[in-house]
């Protein structure tokens, strides 16, 4: 499996390039955004959880998870009820009932990939805080450069089985 995004928020400089790049690539909507805590940024986007709360609550099964694409929206099934947004633990999925597409979430730049291009945020991030690198190379880079401690507990809401997805494919190494 490849193509999932890794975020090393310690490299993030809060330049907002990913946000504007994403908006430009998708024609609007905040699919990635910086959340700030004490002035420090953490770029957040859909984590494509394996046991996705958004998919779990969807009455029409319009959100589906698969190994290759993460959580995907099947637009023709979606009724725009907005329950998925309430279920998302990270607050990175939005529903605009009167817009097209209705569910605004990171789709890993499906359209760009179909043209053989890299996701907009990955391409544009000046410090390579967002990468598509598979896991092992990310870890190797850290080890050769002992500038930051290699730390990492997974985020709290996903304890136990539900945390599998976010622990595997997201920013903690």
């Amino acid at each position: 499996m490849s193509g999932f995004l890794h975020v090393d928020f310690r490299r993030c400089t809060a330049c907002f390039a990913c946000e504007t790049a994403c908006r430009t690539a998708h024609g609007g909507g905040l699919r990635i955004q910086l959340a700030f805590v004490d002035g420090l940024p953490v770029p957040l986007m859909c984590r494509h959880c394996e046991q996705s709360p958004c998919a779990a609550v969807c009455p029409e099964h319009a959100l589906v998870w698969d190994q290759d694409h993460g959580v995907t929206l099947l637009a023709d099934r979606c009724t725009r009820c907005g329950l998925c947004a309430v279920a998302c633990p990270f607050g990175v999925l939005f529903v605009d009932p009167f817009a097209q597409p209705s569910v605004i979430k990171c789709d890993l730049c499906r359209a760009r990939r179909a043209e053989g291009k890299r996701p907009a945020c990955v391409l544009t991030c000046p410090t390579e805080a967002i990468t598509e690198e598979p896991h092992h190379s990310l870890r190797r880079r850290r080890l050769t450069t002992p500038v930051f401690p290699i730390a990492g507990k997974p985020p709290r809401p996903f304890q136990g089985g539900a945390s599998r997805a976010s622990r595997k494919r997201n920013d903690m190494v």
Partner: peptide, 8 residues
């Protein structure tokens, strides 16, 4: 290929 927010 990189751009900042303003460039975009």
């Amino acid at each position: 290929g990189r751009l900042c927010a303003k460039g975009h």
